[in-house]
Design a protein around this nucleic acid. Structure first.
Lengths: 228, 228, 228, 228
DNA sequence: TATGAATGAGATTTCATTCAT
DNA sequence: GATGAATGAAATCTCATTCAT
């Protein structure tokens, strides 16, 4: 992703300016990616440092120049995962929508973004929901905290909708936010697992927004005439 | 915890004590319970056979008289978990409801039952969603299959509702079933984690049914005057 | 050293009373002895757990059933060493001698006892002076503390002699005790290294007592007519 | 073993660069000093090549331009240690003293010199008695050989005294030389460890000479009236 | 049948040494 | 000459599993 710039220079004339920091970062990324894949494919515990190194064609001792130990890289990997999920959730301003139509469009965008995160990197879900939760108690706590954070973001959306009057006033915001997140994650996860991910995504987004806004019951069109 | 020597000698007369098969089953159950707890508390990998044995006050060699190996018991434990979840989902007949009101009540009962499963045994969620998924690829497949099965049950409910006419005709049944399951599981999980589980359960059941049937939007009451 | 008493008994009749504690102690001793030898012969760092196990013909995993880790056994071994040296030094009562003749005889006995400790187990010196000092800072501290303790014992002897009047009143007790210990240890060490250890011992004991009491100078016989 | 590419070619002309030898020697000394300190402070095995390099602010690869390997530098360091101790012992002519007074003064000078060697460089003792003895069998042999050499020097002193008639004729020269060395080393070591090293030195020198010449017994002044 | 001592495969981690730049 | 990234041998330690008692 970054050019190598191995500006090599000789003895007395000039210097070899080693972009160590950059090189290091790149290597760390490479290793982290390899580790992600191994963890997701075979599980954290079934993955040996040697497997990660083998996948990269490096010596396994090299691993330890870039990460303290095995747990360290899991932590690093999960940080990235949480960050990416968080970024998708934060791509919109929870307080910006002022009509139900806008609000709904926004929801669809978020759903789509989240699906994309999981579709782009099909390992994310496995890492976030399974490996991270099962490998280490402390990391599990952190992931639960992240889920709480995600729920809070959801709450802000819902609260805005209630305050602006286009969501039900009696909505149990905290619970609903978590429930909706549950749906969304289930959907993103399922979509990522499907062979035709793009199509699955649209189907999920449509179903979810419909479920979220109107529920499953047959009924008359809602108050202000917003179309489904 | 249970007796050891089936053959007991008293006054030079030997007695064969019990129907061994039953005793064996009981022992297996004890061990499985102990294993469940250890797995849920400390994780599958962090749990040693010795830990399970210690919890029961038996020798760890004894474990192998009842289970082939460590994986074997995880399998056994997960089977029980899946069974219990399945039982809760199957406590109602998916085709029995003939009005939306009935249908809704049925949904609430199922939700409540499911919550109870997870609340009664707070280890279930951890085992089903985390330990089982992370410990072994093959078992993970089985759990995913179980989730598919659960989704199919959900589909039958929804299909019935659509066919009877009190659910939206345009409902994407397959997707919605999975989405709703996602919500339900998220709820059951969250409720199980709460300190006041019973109260949390009611809140969740209310929120979920409301969400599921009417969604979040503010609107006129639905066609046939169902409450709330 | 201890009989095995594997009082084995069968199924329904009687029990196998496993003298676990004793067996464990014996095994620990065996391992400790093997470790001592390996450490003394090849050095602490050059010795692998596998070497110790190999010497005993046991699996190297077995080692860890008896000792926490490699450092643990070094500690254990050194404790024994210190104890044995201490026992030799404590074999006499530092305050008991009331004449120079007695005193001198006592000194010879102690010197002889100490020599014997090192001659009996020629590894002791290596362990006490070298391996223990070089392997681990913390253990080195403990050994230095032990040396201080030994010096204190020496001081008590000297103080008694001064107080009773058969040692020079101007003796620098603290320093002399340490110097004499230095001589003694050097002697015991050298004697242990000699091929004909017993003869070497006598030569050393004679030279040391002579040096200690009269020094090297030629002179008239001391005050009260003690021989030599 | 020393420099690598002495010959540099610029524009097809070859240059032999520097008094490389001297620079190399200086560098070697620097590295040796750093290594000494690290070895003495943390132990040979606990010291990594990288630690030595870090202490000097050089790259650890550079180390290998000056020393073959880790053992090589320990050897080098120990050579220096032995040399310095030997120099102190050889600062006097073992056959020069012709009276007890002279002899005694000489002994004190040697004791003082030896103390100074150890006090000046408090690492010496640790290196000589511990690290060197524990790190490598072969080096240990060499150090023992050095101790034998030191003992021989001592023997020459004693033999001279006996021959000149101011030491006891019945002195076991070989044994006494080693015993006295033991005292001296114990003293030098203790003095080096003390906070107020200079004072400790004088105390030790006084105690040792007194012990060595007159022993601990109370007695009449020696034959020829030499003062204490 | 129950037990726990013994085992060794296998995993993690360190660090002396090499060598391209 | 200097450097430090890369390497892999080797060491420690764990724990599922076996099996004699």
């Amino acid at each position: 992703m970054v050019s190598t710039r191995q500006v090599v220079t000789r003895n007395d004339v000039s210097f070899l300016i080693v972009p160590t920091a950059e090189l290091t970062t790149r290597r760390r990324d490479e290793i982290a990616r390899a580790a992600s894949s191994e963890f997701a494919e075979h599980g954290y515990h079934a993955t040996g440092i040697a497997d990660i190194a083998l996948r990269l064609g490096i010596g396994h001792g090299t691993f330890y120049r870039y990460f303290q130990n095995k747990r360290d890289i899991l932590e690093h990997v999960l940080e990235g995962v949480v960050e990416r999920i968080g970024a998708a959730l934060s791509s919109e301003d929870p307080e910006s929508a002022s009509t139900l139509t806008e609000y709904r469009a926004q929801s669809e965008r978020i759903g789509r973004a989240l699906c994309d995160v999981f579709i782009d990197d099909s390992e994310l879900a496995q890492l976030f929901f399974v490996e991270g939760m099962g490998a280490d108690q402390q990391l599990a706590e952190r992931l639960l905290a992240a889920q709480d954070l995600f729920a809070e973001v959801g709450e802000r959306y819902l609260r805005n909708g209630v305050e602006r009057g286009f969501l039900r006033a009696d909505l149990d915001i905290a619970t609903s936010a978590r429930a909706i997140n549950g749906m969304i994650f289930a959907g993103a996860l399922a979509a990522a697992r499907m062979p035709d991910a793009a199509a699955a995504r649209e189907r999920w987004v449509a179903s979810l927004t419909s479920l979220m806004f109107e529920g499953v019951s047959r009924r008359r069109p809602p108050t202000m005439g917003e179309s489904r």
